[in-house]
Design a protein around this nucleic acid. Sequence first.
RNA 1: GCGGAAGUGGCGGAAUUUGGUAGACGCGCUGGACUUAGGAUCCAGUGGAGCAAUCCGUGGGGGUUCGAGUCCCCCCUUUCGCACCA
Length: 820
Amino acid sequence: MENSATRNDPLPSDAVTYDPSAIEQKWQRIWQERGTNHTDLQRAQRPFYALMMFPYPSAEGLHVGNLFAFTGNDIYGRFQRLIGHNLFEPLGYDAFGIHSENYALKVGQHPMDLIPNNIANFQRQLERAGLMVDWRYKLTTTDPSYYKWTQWLFLQLFEQGLAYKKQAAVNWCPDCKTVLANEQVVGGLCERSKTPVEQRLLEQWFFRISDYAPRLLENLDHIDWSETTKTAQRNWIGRSEGAEIAFEAENVAGGECEIRVFTTRPDTIYGATYLVLAPEHPLVDGLVKPAERKRLNAYREKTKKQDIITRKTSTEKTGVFTGSYAINPATEKQIPIWVSDYVLMEYGTGAIMGVPGHDQRDFEFATKFELPIVRVVCGEREDASTPLHEAFTECESGTLVNSGMFDGFRVEAAKKAIVELLSKSGAAKPIVHYRLHDWCISRQRYWGPPIPIIYCEACGVVPVPEKDLPVVLPFIEDFKPDDSGVSPLARHEEWYRVECPKCGKMGRRETDVSDTFLDSAWYFLRYPSVGRDEVPFDKSITKKWLPVNSYIGGNEHAVLHLLYSRFITMALHDAGHLEFEEPFTRFRAHGHIIREGAKMSKTQGNIVNPDEYIEHWGADAFRTYLMFLGPYEQGGDFRDQSISGPRRFLDRMFASVQSMSSDGSPDHSVMRKLHQTIRKVSEDIPRLSYNTAVAAMMEYMNVLRKGERTPHRDEVLPLIPLVSPFAPHIAEELWEQTGGTGSVFDSAWPAFDPALAMDDSIELVVQVNGRVRGKITVARDIGEKAALVAALAEPTVAKFAVDTPKKVIFVPGRLINIVV
RNA sequence: GCGGAAGUGGCGGAAUUUGGUAGACGCGCUGGACUUAGGAUCCAGUGGAGCAAUCCGUGGGGGUUCGAGUCCCCCCUUUCGCACCA
């Protein structure tokens, strides 16, 4: 803070000067008294729901990144209110989950004690920032009145058959001691702890999100979201069109055995010279010949032990032969069946056909193990005998060769024709495969909502009746997870022993809790209905306020929270609870801020503490600076020195109101600039182009005060609402000082008058041979002939335009280019 | 490896919509005013070279055009996603 805390000097004695802390405290108090930030949800005529991603209330307190995000949303929301909407800008806390729990373990406190303290601290910090949040609708995911409905949501999905339990190989994080969703595993590492993830076979609850893959993908074309976010979702859903092809084989017991492979290149089947199964593939045992068994077992052991990260990143091909053969349904030749870890059990069918001529991985594998490489596609200027030095993967220019009756087919046509042929004998079928897997929601942890299920010896899996919700998370001292794969709650018999709701015999509660992402997958539905105990969300209020008009948040949630929220909304829509199936009409991803060119982190000790800055510069200057330091959707660089600029701007704004005069009439050219500024700011805010909006207002301030002129009242007043979304406290204060009634946020956005913004004379750029040689001031609507005459009259122009012009390019109102 | 985005003064960044004055705005810096003082405030200046006319400048190289930061081709660098996805 050395550089930034240098400004609170004694001020000239008599002048009324800008004192942010006094003004900010005053207006935060008045807003609360008057209920300025309150929304009348029932009576609103033009509802506008401006949502921001709610924070996880960490012990460190509010991060400047949170404030950057929230301020951007607040500006957008306040602007919507000023142009006549009824704004609803709620905020809450995402307080369940491993983050909180691990921190609690680390500091030796119980999360039930810790979280309320953290929330209180966050609340204090957020209130200082001056957000237009209606705190009456605050929600906290750890509150039983909230998670009661998270559990209800689970039951809804259970009833629809969208929640099911299965034993599956799941991602186990040995550090967090819980399973993780696929989305929480990044490059084989736990997204949170960066520990290599292991595979474990466990009974887990899943949601059938994969059933929704086509809809989740198609709807992306119709929603107004940041393109980067949509791309991330498309990649994650991972649609790929291809075919499933069956290869006949004989197992060691002498029985028939069918190996199904998924391929996007059925056209290359004549070049399939071997098959590869994933080491975990269930058919491997039956296929391995006694002579190969020892080597194969050793190989499978080795892959099992290897962590996923090395398996997925090393491209060195390894593998073993099973000793068995399959029949290629196209060539009817015998091809060997191999096992290799480059084939993954979780994708497709866990088996592939090896086409070394036209797949780089297969090429490497075949080269290493000396398997035949056959060319079945050739490009332009190639033929069937052109040697292959690497896989030929080009599709567009490809023509089939060595492919029997399909020789000469183009790749695309061959794909269809071959699948069609093979499907007649049942050997193939066209298939669309999605990478998206079902969402594993079980967590073997303590700090989450218990999954509302009871296991009964007689009745089996019994959902907890809705009237018994919430299943309250008990306060237990011993909440530490262990390596057993069993939840901490399972150690508390007094809690999990419960009567079966169906037959009344003693049963056992599900002791896993649900994923934190379930808490946040529906919170936007709850906000308008906070306080309603009998429903998760009120029907008419929901109809009035949802879907969310504008949602702003970080792109790190592109495939987690945002995808899950869409899925949950669709599922509730299908169950008749909602009338819409996409929750967020418009989504924009904000950027992230760094500090002095480096990433902010606790270890580097370069975290910006909002409290200190607000203390020294005021919340308004801090907000304005955050919005000014870079393009909102890209983020920017927080530099201590630079905050003085926006603060100076507010100082000058304040001073202008104190010194403005009502005598005479405003300056014509200043008023012109004012209207140009109104236009610019009105266009920039909806585009989230906040940095240029602030720059435009600064530019106007420079014009307003140029050469120490005394600004006129009419020149100054419209600036107050204009600046109010950015700096709400000072705007409110100046609004009051200048005789405004009520809140500036209940006034109107300044009207833009195109006639006033229009320049009557313009600077026309004069070029000779495309190079700028001068500028002439002319009437705005000057014609080409008059412009040419005026241009040639300029000495600097005449000097270069010595010959008769060959050609003249005239762009009305902008430039004239004389070609000689 | 694949895909997206980006490369502009000492620094953060404008201008890319529609090819038409490159460097808005701010920080920093320089000079000045007011001052006992200035790390406050205000005024003026600030891409580079040159006394000047002028020339050179948006990662590098080509191209299209009267005119290119903007469009096209090749290359380099940074960055963010995805990553043995069959």
